[in-house]
Nucleic acid binder design. Structure first.
Length: 260
DNA sequence: CTTAATGTTCCCCA
DNA sequence: TTGGGGAACATTAA
């Protein structure tokens, strides 16, 4: 469910509901979502007060009066305020007002103590300057699609927005970063910021079952130009969108607008 | 029954 | 050290 725009939407819907709340108790039941000592995590959380909620890359960082709780939604994770626990509920946070649930059918997400993993991320795509972006691109010689998915290179872009940004910039997903012209690198920087900003405005993309903390779907999926449009006409030139596999991920592009 | 799915990590090889 | 390829993790839906 979650790339930067979806996580940002969850954070924005969650922050006003969680800030100032006290965690009465917490419980976890998945050895995948909460690896290690789940009881220890629960006892660390009990009695803590939530001071704020923010996003770093695809991580949701919940600042406590002592320590930080990090949540990564993986592929199908959801944080739901006052939802109904079900077969895929793997975390329950009982608050002084309300209950927060962590649901995750595939269990690729993580709920963990501390922001250790979030510290190893690359720069935020909405904050990085053109100069810095171009300089980082020049230092690498990987395929653009692979590089955009690399969270240590740039934090928060996932499969949908990598395809959408490359489409908007007119760059082939297999193009090499080291050989990208300055003009095309700048176009990519702009495309990434434009696409992510627009997606946040539309509250993310709901392609299967993504919803924010209040169960609301996003609307950006209606504006996708490449992702999920295999065989459909390119919105710019009418050529059928092609789908290939890059870095084990479905990759959609227009063979005419995105030359190698 | 097979395949693919908004993600990340780990291992092997060049 | 960097990059490519593949497997693994668990579940659902087409």
């Amino acid at each position: 469910m979650p790339e930067l725009p979806e996580v940002e939407t969850v954070v924005r819907s969650l922050a006003p509901l969680l800030t100032g709340r006290r965690i009465s108790s917490a419980s976890f039941n998945s050895r995948f979502v909460t690896p290690g000592d789940r009881g220890k995590l629960a006892s660390r959380l009990a009695g803590r007060t939530i001071q704020g909620v923010r996003r770093r890359g695809k991580f949701i960082l919940i600042a406590l009066d002592s320590g930080t709780l990090a949540v990564h939604l993986g592929m199908t994770g959801k944080l739901l305020m006052d939802g109904t626990p079900g077969a895929h509920t793997h975390g329950i946070f009982v608050l002084d007002e309300g209950v927060l649930l962590y649901d995750d059918s595939r269990q690729f997400g993580r709920v963990e103590w501390g922001a250790k993993r979030a510290e190893r991320l690359g720069p935020e795509p909405l904050e990085i300057s053109v100069e810095e972006f171009c300089s980082r691109l020049r230092r690498r010689k990987a395929r653009l699609k692979t590089l955009l998915l690399n969270q240590a290179f740039l934090a928060g872009v996932g499969n949908i927005y990598a395809d959408e940004a490359l489409f908007a910039a007119g760059i082939h997903p297999l193009a090499l970063s080291s050989r990208l012209s300055r003009a095309r690198a700048e176009a990519l920087h702009r495309a990434i910021q434009d696409i992510l900003s627009a997606a946040i405005e539309h509250r993310g993309s709901s392609i299967s079952d993504y919803v924010d903390a209040q169960g609301e779907r996003g609307g950006f999926q209606l504006l996708h130009c490449a992702y999920g449009r295999e065989g459909e006409p390119c919105v710019k030139c009418g050529t059928p969108i092609r789908k290939i596999v890059v870095a084990q991920r479905g990759t959609h592009f227009c063979p005419r607008c995105q030359k190698r």
